[in-house]
Design a protein around this nucleic acid. Structure first.
Length: 411
RNA sequence: GCGGAUAUCGUCAAGUGGUUAAGACCUCGGAUUGUGGUUCCGAUAUGCGUGGGUUCGAGUCCCACUAUCCGCCCCA
């Protein structure tokens, strides 16, 4: 038997219905904020992610679904199933010259992403993200709006038990300085750190701050290291940006926690980064994450354009929300005349009712049994009804059966 | 990539080396030829993740593989 691939799953019945609801609620929330939906391809040139997400990230290093196409001329065209969607949206932004339009340009998306990882609670190889990307605004009011929107989105799913973490990574220049001072501080302890951190030290030292290894945690906990990490390293410009943002958030009554150790795993982030966590998710506690990526558009060949966005894990969100059952159809038509049953069902649907009918030409007791399990009311369309031109309508919860002479009384 | 647990029908499961692999739910049929939700009767795994091995005999023991779940890493 052929089974669904490891880390992938089928979404059926009520689950599928709840997914539709999620998309609808997200769509409404974003539409009100002036975001339009963007749909980009599921695969892109591998190069896009190498340059966009970054060579030092785990995603690019070991989690991409990359393959070459083009038959015998292998490696001619290396493509990759998107591991995230920011790079794709930025590519589209550049390709369609959207920077020529009056800023800001605001987009949202919903779709599958692919990462080759070991599946676990809250982690699949094909998973879905809802996200937004906004281009062309540097002002911190945009950061505040985006963060508010993220919170607002979660609240529209009736979630309240989550925590917002916030940090600023600084801009290109002060981020470099920060990196260097971290490297300097850590150097004496480097040989005691885990192998991963030794690599990070070279490639992306900020990620060391994220390390969960006890040995590394111990070193990060040392006073002299903490002093360097917690020092306000960011430049006055970035500090001003961050302070204005937190001021706005305070003004909006948003609870957040500044976490100086919050460093995100994708290379393109700078300045504002944030993450929303729930304690009900197990070890994969992040439900949403995002931040600024002011140089990504330029990195990928576009004009210098500030930008910010976030992505939400739909499977993780799904596990937190209250589920809704699919509504039963209004009518189930019980009949041994499939032609008349079909005609009536189609007519009812045209009148705005939901209606199903029995295909089986089975005994009425069987048809009614099915009706009682699946529908609110049964319309019995037997020989008497067809010949004499009326409908017997039975309310399946009260057992009450009435004779309806006029079709209009059914709708 | 590393650790731990698990794998018996569509679902939940009993089974701890010995005849034909319990049971429940779901599904289907009948009791009831035009009246369901309650009741009663019946049907449904030549099969126990896959492949080997031990044994007179394997769902049960051993080995390998695969998958799932949980944790690490990382992320959403």
């Amino acid at each position: 038997m052929i089974k669904a691939q490891r880390g992938t799953k089928d979404i059926l019945f009520d689950e599928s219905y709840n997914w539709e609801r999620i998309e609808k609620i997200a769509s409404e929330t974003f539409r009100k904020a002036g975001f339009s939906k963007i749909q980009t391809p599921i695969f892109e040139a591998t190069e896009l992610f190498n340059r966009g997400v970054g060579e030092s990230s785990d995603i690019v290093n070991k989690e991409m679904y990359t393959f070459s196409v083009g038959g015998a001329k292998k490696n001619e065209n290396s493509i990759t199933l998107r591991p995230e969607n920011t790079a794709g949206v930025v590519r589209a932004y550049i390709e369609h010259n959207l920077s020529r339009l009056s800023p800001p340009q605001k987009f949202w998306y919903f779709g599958p992403m692919f990462r080759y990882e070991r599946p676990q609670a809250g982690r699949q190889r094909q998973f879905h993200q809802i996200g937004i990307e906004a281009f062309g605004v540097e002002d911190p009011s945009m950061d505040a709006e985006i963060i508010f929107l993220a919170i607002n989105l979660l609240k529209s799913f009736n979630l309240s038990d989550f925590e917002v973490e916030l940090n600023s990574l600084g801009c290109k220049t002060c981020k470099e300085e920060y990196k260097n001072s971290i490297k300097e501080a850590i150097l004496p302890y480097l040989d005691k750190m885990c192998p991963d951190c030794k690599v990070r030290y070279q490639k992306n030292p900020l990620r060391i701050l994220d390390c969960k290894q006890p040995s590394c945690q111990e070193i990060l906990g040392l006073e002299e290291i903490k002093k360097v990490v917690l020092k306000d390293y960011i430049c006055p410009h970035c500090k001003n940006h961050f302070d204005t943002l937190t001021n706005y958030l305070d003004e909006l009554g948003i609870n957040y926690k500044i976490n100086k150790f919050l460093v995100r795993g994708l290379d393109y982030y700078n300045r504002t980064v944030f993450e929303i966590k729930s304690s009900h998710l197990g070890s994969q506690s992040a439900i949403l994450g995002g931040g600024r990526y002011d140089s990504l558009v330029e990195t990928l060949g576009g004009p210098k354009t500030p930008a910010i966005g976030f992505a939400l894990g739909v499977e993780r969100l799904y596990s937190l929300i209250e589920k809704v059952e699919v509504q039963k159809p209004d009518y189930y038509i019980v009949s041994n005349n499939q032609k008349e049953a079909l005609k009536l069902a189609l007519k009812l649907r045209e009148s705005g009712k939901s209606a199903e009918f029995d295909y089986g030409n089975r005994k009425f007791s069987k048809q009614l049994e099915k009706a009682s399990k699946t529908a609110k009311k049964a319309i019995i369309l037997g020989e008497d009804e067809i010949n004499q031109g009326f409908y017997s309508v039975k309310d399946l919860s009260s057992s009450e059966q009435i004779k309806v002479d006029n079709y209009n009384d059914l709708i």
